[in-house]
């Protein structure tokens, strides 16, 4: 009876450790944040996001300063609206430029911000006006290498 109880405890604790690992991994891999995270929200409109995903990083000079919280489609202009959560201590000037870039040649998409020089700092919910959309390499290649179809 006693040995059976011991086995049950061992199996139970093994399973709990497994569950903890699964939860830890899904948080790590899915860029999922348990809490909403602190920071302020800004958004930017792009004509083309090129497969940017929720949870992608927002960077200045290669340093992560925030994450993409959500991507929606504006049903009037058919532009993509990218909502970003930026760390409180990072200030983004009104004339900053947000571009969607690719890590390496075929890597993940992320948002890069080139800081501006304006004295006006973006506040919660404001819009980064200057954006550069993702560049579609395949489209460019076909356009310039082969020309259009007549």
């Amino acid at each position: 009876m006693n040995s059976k109880y011991g086995i049950e405890v061992a199996v139970g604790s093994f399973l709990s450790i497994c569950f903890a690992c699964v939860i830890y991994l899904s948080i790590q891999l899915g860029n999922f944040q348990l809490m909403n995270g602190s920071g302020y929200k800004v958004n930017a409109n792009f004509a083309e996001t090129g497969g940017l995903k929720k949870g992608a990083t927002v960077e200045i000079a290669g340093v992560e300063i925030g994450r993409v919280k959500d991507i929606k489609l504006d049903d009037k202009t058919y532009m993509a609206i990218v909502y970003m959560l930026i760390k409180d201590e990072i200030k983004i000037q009104e004339d900053s430029i947000a571009s969607i870039k690719t890590k390496g040649l075929l890597g993940d998409k992320y948002v890069q911000i080139a800081p501006g020089g304006s004295e006006n700092i973006l506040k919660e919910g404001e819009n980064i006006k200057e954006t550069e959309s993702a560049i579609n390499l395949e489209d460019m290649l076909s356009k310039y290498a082969f020309g259009g179809v007549k």
Binding site: I97, A114, E130, A134, I135, M140
Partner: peptide, 13 residues
């Protein structure tokens, strides 16, 4: 912006 590339951002970097 030509082909999505901004003149200002090009010179800025």
């Amino acid at each position: 912006q030509i082909e999505g590339i901004s003149l200002v951002n090009n010179y800025r970097s």
